[in-house]
């Protein structure tokens, strides 16, 4: 029996060498339990060592291997060849990011935005809290539920890749960064909301979002960044009304 095969149409781009990306097609063995990443690794190890891409955990939690698979942003460790077979699989670098090489995109913009939203617990007494047995800050399971979903973000960048607003306005803070800010704002242990709002509420923050909603559709971890953004809009609007109606209020 001859082994079944499948074609991969992979975007290549070598800076300094190629002016713009080209497509290279590889034929690899087809296995119904192989994911796209397995096929790429097969190419690199057996056919063409010069193909570059990122990957690490192969279990959908490290966030390294996001690419466009047949035009949709996906984790390639969770996109099975059988979803395309017998058609060829088209593999491209994540949309909306500068391509550094082949399937590798530049995500420094996100890394910068992530720090901007102060994604950590802020409270005055943080460094003086006692440690050890019995000194956890109490948080009920219900309070944990308030934010946990938004803390499931693996920073895989699929949401930015699906966001047309980010494509048109790269200054937009974007889905993941805002979802993570919201995660801390909703954490009962945190007191830092007012410090995050200047960035979140700026013109490049939540108000850029026109609620296309595709970020939440492509999110492999069901974070629902669109909800985080819309809820932050509502909360910010409430704050504004409160400050108008009660200017003496200490907000």
């Amino acid at each position: 029996m001859t082994e079944s095969t499948i074609k991969l149409a992979v975007t290549r781009y070598r800076p300094g060498q190629d002016r713009e990306p080209t497509v290279q097609t590889y034929t690899v063995p087809y296995h119904d339990d192989w994911v796209v990443l397995d096929a790429l690794q097969y190419v690199k190890d057996n056919i063409d060592g010069t193909l570059s891409f990122r990957w690490s955990c192969h279990m959908g939690v490290c966030g390294s291997c996001g690419m466009m698979v047949d035009g949709t942003p996906k984790l390639t460790c969770a996109a099975f060849l059988r979803e395309s077979y017998p058609r060829e699989v088209r593999v491209e670098p994540l949309a909306n990011f500068p391509v550094v090489r082949d399937l590798i995109v530049d995500i420094d913009d996100f890394m910068h935005k992530l720090s901007e939203v102060k994604p950590y617990i802020i409270r005055e007494d943080l460094d003086s809290l006692p440690l050890g047995l019995g000194h956890e800050l109490r948080q009920t399971p219900a309070e944990l539920e308030d934010f946990k979903q938004f803390g499931m973000c693996i920073n895989c960048m699929l949401c930015y890749s699906a966001c047309p607003v980010y494509a048109m306005e790269p200054k937009f803070l974007g889905p993941a960064a805002i979802a993570l800010a919201h995660r801390y704002n909703m954490d009962s242990r945190d007191q830092g909301r007012n410090q995050r709002m200047p960035v979140i509420g700026s013109s490049e923050g939540i108000w850029e979002c026109t609620f296309v909603g595709e970020c939440s559709v492509v999110c492999p971890k069901h974070v629902d960044p669109a909800a985080a953004i819309q809820r932050t809009k509502l909360a910010t609007t409430n704050d504004w009304f409160k400050s108008m109606l009660m200017p003496w209020g200490n907000r």
């Binding site: 950590y120 809290l129 109490r138 948080q139 399971p141 309070e143 934010f147 801390y184």
Partner: peptide
């Protein structure tokens, strides 16, 4: 204290 979302008992 650094925000890890540890699972909790009903009393927090």
């Amino acid at each position: 204290h650094w925000g890890c979302p540890w699972s909790r008992e009903p009393d927090g």
